[in-house]
Nucleic acid binder design. Structure first.
Lengths: 335, 335
DNA sequence: CTGTTAGCGCTTTCAC
DNA sequence: GTGAAAGCGCTAACAG
């Protein structure tokens, strides 16, 4: 089927031993220059490439990292993946990507599969279900095996590993502060991801900031995005508000559309800010002010930390947590 | 670092030979039931899993497929990837994903890398640049090595491999026909992806249908999405039209927003249909009528074909082309 | 029934 | 300078 040149074949053709060929290809000073040249020449001719499998088996390194994502249709994770892929390939690593679909079982299954496929390390964002059932044995197992892990965005606080997170509470505080400064007094917080820790942090931050400004927040928490359209529409219709902070992009996008349907003008009647500067905020009308989580940087950072860990020879490694600063992107509603 | 149980260790502990242990784990009838049980027990105890690398080296199969995508932030490809991942994992395959970022060089580089990493096959959508420079040597190389390949959506017609495509021309014909039937007479076709073959097919279909209805299409082709906002705005402002077919989601989304800015009502003043039923059409206001390419099915289908090919023992294999039928999704602009 | 042997492709130590 | 040999973890043909 697939014929690939091996050291053996080169050796035979050159009347050399396998080991000499191997060394020549690495320009080992032990070998005479003449031989080295002969070997390189033939190798080039046959476009010889060492068999990655064999090298990995020997070296116990695969130059592959396992990625566990809860979702990929979510723009935030797509961007993160983009950042991960770019940085990984720049560092000479391949990525094995698995999507847990927010399922705990899938997360466990994929983790084991990738682990037995000998990835050099993991980059993981927790599935929603894992955060709900609160079971983390599979992570303890990884820890025991000393497999390098970087968790990002949706992390398990008690896990003793590198982490890259976003300053969710701070981002919320800033957003509410901005709304308050603009004169809004009836601010609502809407979310479809209430079960996630990040949402809890965002809510916390929002409340802190509201309190500081003497405001009381309204809130709408949807179990999921399924009936977001009608629920948000009704909420907006029946609640006096002049601003909305959407804790996820769907909430914010649906809020904008509901405002249209209700004839509320944005931002004159209602100001809207949404978490995550995804594609929806870019192409909504009017454009959505949003909180950028710099997902691509976040993904790239995760790779950097992981590769540093993997390639760090000392076996003592102190876990670090990197916080990515969000930024509030205000968009002129007229363009 | 990472300690994993091997056959050797099990063998030693059980006072058996490595091969007996190996056979026992496969329930080889040659081995006595008693031994089989002993082996299984200890294996379970140590949670033994065969080293995938070693198995692959021996079998020349990695149960891994290489995915080459032009982009991942594009919702269509994200959906396709989702479908690919789901089906692959159901079939027991892992995926190595690389993003070419529409670059020819990256495409070549990644393909070589994945090929030397011994993927069992490839699923590929061509990068834009590859279609422009029109160089396909790297595919001929794959063909020569008899590596199974499935191309999807953006395919190279002359490649002798399985393909999964969308009936782009037909989809366009239907869309234009629908607009004509609704009484539109000044239809414009807008695109930011004119260099892609799929766009050419879509344009062709649109013209066919227009001609049939005695209509003359207007057209706006943007080199890229960078200045889409202003270019589309100006086009709509200066051209008398009552309908737009967007050949990509960005065109359609920006068209909708521009209509808002110009005070054109949708669909009363202007009807808009966009290719690809992505997240933008779902959350635009009013919701965008769109042409669904069933990206997830498409991805899943690609995996099915590839795995069938990989696991098909006969070495004669006749390439097939699967056409995914699009559907026109009409969305009520009032909900 | 169980074990020995060879080999997948490569690296690395140790002889010559 | 070059080569023989062992071993990474596994499978499979062949002996006993």
């Amino acid at each position: 089927m697939r014929k690939k040149v091996t050291l053996k074949q080169l050796a035979r053709e050159l009347n050399l031993s396998i080991s000499t060929v191997s060394k020549s290809l690495k320009n080992d000073p032990e070998i005479s220059e003449k031989t080295i040249n002969r070997v390189h020449e033939l190798a080039q001719f046959y476009n010889y490439k060492p068999n990655a499998l064999a090298v990995s088996l020997k070296s116990n390194r695969t130059k592959t990292i396992g990625i566990l994502l809860p979702e990929i249709l979510n723009h935030f994770f797509a961007k993160a993946l983009n950042g991960i892929e770019k940085e990984a390939s720049a560092r000479g690593y391949k990525i094995l990507t698995c999507i847990t679909n927010e399922s705990y079982d899938k997360e466990v299954e994929y983790m084991e599969m990738l682990n037995h496929s000998s990835v050099d390390g993991f980059i993981i964002a927790l599935s929603e279900e894992t955060q709900i059932v609160n079971k983390y044995d599979h992570y303890e197992a990884l820890k025991r095996e000393k497999v390098p892990v970087v968790m990002f965005d949706r992390v398990w606080d008690q896990m003793d590993c590198d982490k890259v997170i976003v300053d969710d509470a701070e981002a919320s505080r800033n957003a509410i502060q901005y709304l308050a400064d603009s004169g809004c007094t009836n601010i609502a917080v809407i979310t479809t991801i209430g079960d996630l820790n990040v949402a809890k942090l965002r809510i916390e931050g929002a409340h802190q900031s509201a309190e500081k400004n003497g405001l009381l927040l309204k809130g709408l928490t949807l179990k999921n995005a399924t009936h977001a359209e009608e629920e948000i529409y009704n909420f907006l219709k029946n609640t006096a508000i002049d601003a909305v902070l959407g804790l996820d992009e769907t909430s914010a996008a649906v809020t904008i559309n509901s405002c249209h349907r209700l004839g509320y003008k944005i931002p004159e009647d209602v100001s809207v800010i949404g978490f995550s500067d995804g594609i929806l905020s870019k192409y909504s009308y009017p454009k959505l002010s949003s909180i950028s989580q710099h997902a691509e940087d976040l993904g790239a950072k995760a790779v950097t930390m992981l590769v540093d860990h993997i390639e760090n020879t000392k076996d003592s490694y102190t876990p670090r947590t990197e916080v990515i600063k969000t930024s509030l992107i205000l968009r002129d509603s007229t363009n």
